[in-house]
Design a protein around this nucleic acid. Structure first.
Lengths: 230, 230
DNA sequence: GTACGCCGGATTGCATCCAATCGCAAGCAT
DNA sequence: ATGCTTGCGATTGGATGCAATCCGGCGTAC
């Protein structure tokens, strides 16, 4: 679907296809376990199978699809252990990314974070709105980072777990949501104080608490997660 | 070079080529800044340019080559800041990987580590021997980890800095080498005691100290690093 | 009735061929 | 003499076509 695009010309067909499929995986159009056929994507994006294969390879290295030689490609289906592993990596890497970003965040940037945090508090039960704003909030806090690899890696880790985040965030109690909101505001206060080390600790705890909650929600990773293939 | 291989048949030509080029980058055959031409690799590995392109894309996502659309591919040339960033990531991730590995390391595994550490102490001024054994030591300490992504990621980080490691390790003083040896033995002792947390701290300090030494060796990253292209 | 073997369709993997883009150098104008 | 333009060679990007491989069902033998 999407706009059929004006055929191919520049040197980025594979990138465009990868972007489209990645968006489909994150948004849930391609659910975990869904088969990815080269020819379908080629027809869908008006391209040949060569750039499609490049796109699939790229997504494989982003951890979004699994490729089996001479068999095919499927959207990655994570186990609970694998998802916890990703959160443990985030727990260590995102404070480092925040350390890179914090010195370059100005007062207006932090005001922006405050606005986002307020909007998150106001989402109430709207899980989709919470997910979008929470993602925006955290990446806005990383906007100051001038990193070559770390920023992209953190983005990939978020994308890897995107198909599962909706499921377990919707299972949060009102109390769990309230704690998340308070952690956001605490982190903002520390950033405003220039206490980057404390902001890092709060962020690490924020992710760690989410991971521990995730470990208590194993039913997400049973076969229940596979919707029908489109 | 290498064995010309019996043409293509199975579904792994791209993987084979990527393995070969990766080994060439790590070993120094392809130094940082060297141009990578698709047709050359195709001829070298007896394949077409299609799997070569897949291999280059893969290496790009491993952080080993830089691809410019419609221009070509070059072996990545890191700046000091980028190299420090990678070490900061390692400083956070490798203790986590050790945490995954330590519970599965038996007495024989730790004895093996001890043997490697003793061999490292005996290398003296032989930089190549030190590099090989040091790599073997650290990855042996991670051998118990059953991770889906973290282990591969750490391997990629090591590979990314491989072309530069030789240069700055050879600049180490005898004292710096002695400290590294002692840290190895301290880590082994902690692992033998079952004190994983202490082993993690030692490992983090080990990497951090190396990073700080690296920051005092900026001359490695000047144009001096580009050898001639083979 | 069950297990093994075989064959057909479908899909992936690779090679070859053509088009588009970029870098570079020679030529021209100022 | 210097700067800009223009054309050519080299290299990459993409499309098409063919061979190899794998999964499904069907038939046969035990």
């Amino acid at each position: 679907m999407s706009d059929a695009s004006p055929r191919t010309r520049d040197g980025d067909a594979g990138i465009r296809i990868a972007d489209g499929v990645r968006a489909g995986i994150i948004s849930g159009t391609h659910p975990p376990g869904a088969r990815i056929r080269q020819e379908d994507l080629a027809a869908q994006y008006g391209a040949s199978r060569v750039p499609v294969r490049e796109a699939i390879r790229q997504l494989e290295y982003e951890g979004l699809v699994t490729v089996v030689p001479n068999a095919g490609a499927w959207v990655v289906r994570l186990t609970l252990a694998e998802c916890e592993e990703i959160y443990r990596m985030r727990e260590r890497l995102e404070p480092l990314l925040l350390q890179y970003s914090a010195p370059h965040l100005g007062t207006t940037d932090i005001d922006e974070l405050h606005t986002l945090a307020e909007q998150i508090t106001a989402t109430g039960d709207d899980t989709d709105a919470f997910l979008a704003l929470d993602t925006a909030f955290h990446f806005a806090s990383y906007a100051g980072a001038r990193t070559a690899q770390l920023g992209d890696l953190v983005g990939r880790l978020w994308n890897s777990t995107a198909p599962y985040r909706r499921a377990y965030v919707s299972s949060w109690s009102a109390d769990a949501r309230r704690i998340a909101h308070e952690e956001h505001h605490l982190m903002i206060a520390s950033l405003r104080d220039g206490d980057t080390a404390e902001a890092e600790r709060i962020l690490a705890g924020h992710i760690r608490r989410t991971r521990r909650h995730l470990a208590r929600t194993p039913e997400i990773f049973d076969g229940a997660g596979d919707h029908r293939v489109t």
